Simulated scan of single mutants.
Amino acid sequence: MPTPHAWTTTPITADLVRGALDLETTEHGVRPHRLPAWARAQCPDPQLAMAEAQPSGVRIAFRTAATAVELEAVPTRVVYTGGPPRPQGVYELVVDGRRVDGAAAPGGTTVAVSMATGAREARPGPAGTLRFAGLPDRVKDVEIWLPHNETTELVALRTDAPVEPLPDRGRRVWLHHGSSISHGSNAAAPTGIWPAVAAARGGVELVNLGLGGSALLDPFTARTMRGTPADLISLKIGINLVNLDLMRLRAFTPAVHGFLDTIREGHPSAPLLVVSPLYCPIHEDTPGPGAFDLDALRAGRLGFRATGDPAERAAGKLTLTVIREELARIVAQRQAADPHLSYLDGLDLYGPDDHAELPLPDALHPDAAAHRRIGERFAERVFASGGAFAPARG
Score class of each variant (00 low, 15 high):
G107N: 06
L246E: 08
I323A: 04
A73P: 15
A296D: 10
A230D: 08
H267C: 14
P136D: 08
D231W: 11
P2T: 00
G19Q: 10
Y350R: 02
G134C: 12
I239S: 14
M115W: 07
G125A: 03
S234M: 10
P11K: 00
I144W: 12
L297M: 07
G118H: 00
R158V: 06
I193K: 10
P55G: 03
I181T: 02
V74C: 13
H355T: 00
A200C: 05
T109S: 10
M1I: 07
R305V: 10
R264I: 07
L320D: 01
R86E: 11
P277F: 06
A336R: 15
R172E: 05
P165V: 04
T262V: 10
V90G: 08
A356I: 03
D137A: 15
L349R: 05
A255S: 09
A104P: 01
L349D: 07
H33V: 00
D96K: 08
L217K: 09
A199R: 11
Y91P: 08
T129I: 03
L130D: 05
A388G: 09
A198I: 01
A332R: 14
P289V: 06
L318V: 01
G82S: 07
V17N: 14
L232M: 07
A39H: 10
A14C: 06
V17L: 13
T286E: 05
A61H: 04
F292E: 04
S56Q: 10
R373Y: 12
G212W: 00
P126E: 06
A315N: 10
P32K: 11
P366E: 02
Q333I: 03
A196P: 12
E312K: 07
P277V: 00
A65H: 01
R372V: 06
I144Y: 13
G57C: 01
F259R: 13
Y91I: 01
A37S: 14
A392V: 13
G212E: 03
V256M: 09
A392L: 03
G288S: 02
L232I: 01
T253R: 06
D261Q: 12
T159L: 14
A332D: 13
P4R: 11
L206S: 11
S180I: 02
V382Q: 11
L344N: 03
M50G: 09
L21I: 12
R59M: 00
R123L: 15
A49P: 09
E27R: 12
I60K: 02
C43M: 02
A270F: 15
I239Q: 05
V274Q: 11
T286V: 14
P190D: 04
P391N: 04
G316D: 00
R99D: 05
A188K: 03
S385N: 05
P277H: 06
H5M: 09
T129D: 01
I233F: 09
L35I: 04
E153W: 05
G125F: 04
R34L: 09
G107M: 05
G170Q: 10
T152C: 15
A127D: 01
E284V: 07
D218K: 00
I282R: 04
V173T: 09
I330C: 10
T152V: 13
N208T: 00
P167V: 00
P55A: 01
A198S: 09
P271Y: 07
A215C: 13
T228I: 02
